[in-house]
Nucleic acid binder design. Structure first.
Lengths: 325, 325
DNA sequence: AACTGCTACTGACACGTGCAAGTGATGCGT
DNA sequence: ACGCATCACTTGCACGTGTCAGTAGCAGTT
């Protein structure tokens, strides 16, 4: 009963002939001694751990991100991988600290990294990268090292397009888009705005009225609502449900009926959207589908499979039709 | 320039006399070769990594949990530790998978673990545990092994007490408490309910009217509101802001004015609470203070310090007074 | 000259695993 | 009886660190 034999049994290494009796003896002993392998030694030997690390810049984490994380955790679990998220506070400590604390099997970048951080990450030799941000570009010098980049931000863009399409389908022609200028969500906000404008253009609408607010405070939104009355805007697409609810509130204050005078469509399908006055029509993101796609991509690259699945540009978002649009 | 010398320089090990010249030569070489130590080898050698792992049962993750995670991440960063969260889906894979994937320096249990999971965790030899749940009890056989348990759930209880105290302070005598029966939040909900009832008792109020709803759906809440009208309830304490907003909506439908006919106070201080009609009075949790407390506790135990800071039972929650109560 | 004390370094080991290579025993064919 | 193949193992190394014990060189003391 040498250590090697034990190792073969416990990992049931293929192409090793081990009689049933020995096998059972090993397993029994392992059970009895409550043996569990050391993750550190394993990672040292294998060059990687079983941990998939999500990196997320700190910022407003809502139920949407929460659902996505849940879905990822569940999904990676089915592949024998463990998913954990690191919330990164920019300015305090470099993100690279994370892969100095663990050697992850893969890193999933859930929000934008700047160029230096990208380079750091690629230099660390982490085998897989899946990025939710389109700004992530493989480092030219280091590409081909097995590192692979998949971008999933299209889910968010597709959602924004859906918002516009619904307003168009319900007969609106003059629409407004409310976006946030909060730097913490800049990248996401820009992507959604672009997608919304593009969708409006494709539908042959006049250029939407774009409103940038610093946050979803009632004052900022109220001012925008007054402008829309003057401009004949009948439908509003917002950055997310929270902004949408602020718009609903402002519309009520301005004496507008929703959706008759102003149709409002949000994004995220927050629990609170159901309780809004009137219940908020919104677009939900399909966290499971997204997680599944990410999981498949990571598994493919870890398996050394060169065919990383193509990213579908649609199918991750769905319309939740309620009363506000 | 042996490996030992290099190690001494890079870790500036105390009580090692190393001349400035050698030191610089080592640092220069490290810089030039872009050396960075292997986390796996380090953990293997040290018996622990620099990772502090938060464990959270999957469930509705809202901005409150998000803020807490952010604060923890920032706080642990200042101690040279890296914080990551694992979302655990019960039933799929055992939580213990996590500490089979990494050897964390400490585990912070952010939501309830069952007895078997607790035993597993303690058996793993993880040096520190900080639990947010009061149900976490040190394993009798394994205690004293360096493992330490600190319970922080009082923050949540204190918040619930604050809700009641505010209603009392504004003259309400007959109050109702709305709690959720959703199993995912059971532990939290029970703690808050207990604390609210206790606070009501201490203030000399008649026993509050307790309403248990399965979720914050409009129907369930509307039924409760009608009952309150009959019973002369003038103030409502809810499990969280989302439920509170459902109550606001139901009150409006029932023709009640808020806060004149019915005062409503939530918990969480969600962004959306500000946009509610009327703006929701609520209780916010002070994530930074909580994270700081947890951070100090972990640091104390990791340093081998036997004096783990006492847990303050108050000071983690604050009243956010708006229009609804 | 022998001893002591200090500086500046080096050698060697241990952590726990996974795996390539080797080794003795047995069975089988000729 | 001998070669060969297969089985059931074992030996031994490598992964990259942190640290203990040791040691050569030198100055100063007795």
């Amino acid at each position: 009963m040498s250590r090697a034999t034990v190792s073969y049994v416990l990992n049931d290494t293929p192409h090793q002939k081990i009689p049933q009796q020995t096998r059972e003896r090993v397993l029994e002993a392992a059970q009895r001694l409550a043996y569990s392998p050391s993750p550190a030694a394993r990672s040292l030997r294998n060059g990687r751990s079983d941990l998939v690390l999500g990196v997320l810049k700190v910022g407003p984490i809502g139920s949407v991100v929460g659902a996505l994380l849940n879905a990822m955790s569940t999904r990676f679990g089915t592949d024998g991988l463990t998913f954990a998220v690191h919330l990164h506070s920019p300015g305090l400590r470099p993100v690279s600290d994370v892969w100095k604390a663990v050697t992850p099997a893969a890193v999933v970048v859930l929000s934008g990294l700047d160029a230096a951080e990208q380079a750091d990450l690629q230099r660390s030799g982490t085998p897989v990268l899946v990025s939710l941000s389109p700004a992530f570009t493989p480092h030219p010098l280091l590409d081909g090292s097995g590192t692979r980049v998949v971008c999933v931000e299209y889910a968010s863009r597709a959602a924004a397009a859906l918002q516009v399409e619904h307003l168009v389908a319900t007969g609106h022609r003059r629409i407004a888009v409310v976006t946030l200028t909060d730097p913490q969500v800049r990248q996401l906000a820009e992507g959604r705005l672009d997608a919304a404008l593009e969708a409006a253009h494709e539908a042959g609408l006049p250029a939407p009225h774009v409103v940038e607010v610093a946050d979803d405070s009632p004052q900022a939104v109220a001012a925008a609502v007054r402008t829309w009355q003057a401009e004949g805007v009948t439908g509003v697409v917002t950055y997310n449900d929270e902004v949408a609810m602020a718009v609903l509130s402002a519309a009520r204050d301005a004496g507008l009926r929703v959706p008759e005078d102003l149709a409002v469509i949000g994004l995220d399908d927050l629990p609170a959207a159901r309780s809004a006055q009137p219940p908020l029509t919104t677009v939900g993101l399909d966290a499971e589908a997204l997680a599944d796609f990410v999981g498949r991509s990571v598994a493919a690259v870890l398996a050394g499979d060169p065919d990383v699945p193509e990213e579908p540009t649609t199918g991750f978002a769905h319309l939740v039709r309620r009363a506000s649009a």
